[in-house]
Amino acid sequence: MLEQLEAIRERFHEVSQQIVQPEVASDVKRYKTLSKEYKDLEKIVKKYEEYQLLLGQIASAKEVLTTEKDEEFREMAKMELDELEPNQDVLEQELKELLIPKDPNDSRNIILEVRGGTGGDEAAIFAGDIFRMYQRFAQNQGWQFQIMDQTEGSSGGFKEIIVSVQGEDVYGKLKFESGVHRVQRVPATETQGRIHTSAASVAVLPEAEEVDVQINMNDIRKDTFCSSGAGGQSVNTTYSAVRVTHLPTGLVVQCQDERSQIKNFEKAMTVLRSRLYEMELAKQQAEISGARKSMVGSGDRSDKIRTYNYPQSRVTDHRIGYTVYNLPAVMDGEIGDFIEQLRIAENAERLKEGAV
Results as ranks from 00 to 15, higher is better:
3 E>A: 12
5 L>N: 04
5 L>P: 13
7 A>L: 13
7 A>G: 10
8 I>Y: 08
16 S>D: 08
22 P>G: 10
24 V>A: 03
24 V>S: 11
26 S>A: 14
31 Y>R: 14
32 K>D: 05
33 T>H: 15
37 E>L: 10
38 Y>R: 13
39 K>Q: 15
44 I>L: 04
45 V>Y: 09
51 Y>F: 14
54 L>Y: 03
54 L>K: 01
57 Q>N: 15
59 A>F: 04
63 E>S: 10
63 E>G: 13
66 T>H: 07
72 E>D: 10
73 F>M: 13
80 E>I: 05
81 L>A: 10
81 L>N: 07
82 D>E: 14
90 V>I: 15
90 V>L: 14
91 L>H: 04
92 E>K: 09
92 E>W: 06
94 E>D: 14
97 E>M: 11
100 I>G: 05
102 K>I: 12
103 D>W: 08
106 D>N: 12
108 R>I: 12
110 I>A: 00
111 I>H: 04
117 G>W: 00
117 G>Q: 09
119 G>P: 00
123 A>R: 00
126 F>I: 06
127 A>I: 06
129 D>P: 00
131 F>N: 05
135 Q>E: 13
135 Q>R: 04
138 A>H: 01
138 A>C: 03
143 W>F: 14
147 I>G: 09
149 D>W: 03
152 E>Q: 12
158 F>K: 08
158 F>W: 13
159 K>L: 07
163 V>Q: 01
165 V>C: 14
167 G>S: 01
174 L>V: 11
180 V>A: 14
185 R>T: 08
186 V>I: 15
187 P>C: 14
188 A>C: 02
192 Q>C: 02
195 I>A: 05
200 A>G: 03
202 V>G: 04
203 A>P: 01
204 V>D: 00
205 L>N: 05
213 V>N: 06
214 Q>V: 11
214 Q>C: 07
215 I>P: 02
217 M>G: 01
217 M>E: 13
220 I>L: 15
220 I>W: 04
221 R>L: 09
224 T>P: 00
239 Y>G: 02
240 S>M: 11
244 V>M: 02
248 P>Q: 01
252 V>G: 13
259 R>P: 09
264 N>H: 01
267 K>L: 13
269 M>D: 00
270 T>V: 15
270 T>I: 11
273 R>D: 02
277 Y>F: 15
277 Y>K: 08
281 L>H: 02
282 A>S: 07
288 I>S: 06
290 G>D: 14
292 R>K: 11
292 R>L: 10
294 S>N: 06
296 V>M: 02
296 V>C: 04
303 D>L: 04
306 R>C: 08
308 Y>C: 06
313 S>F: 01
316 T>Y: 02
317 D>F: 05
321 G>M: 05
324 V>F: 06
325 Y>F: 14
328 P>F: 14
329 A>L: 12
332 D>S: 09
334 E>D: 15
338 F>K: 02
339 I>H: 11
346 E>V: 00
348 A>M: 07
348 A>N: 13
351 L>R: 06
352 K>V: 08
353 E>K: 10
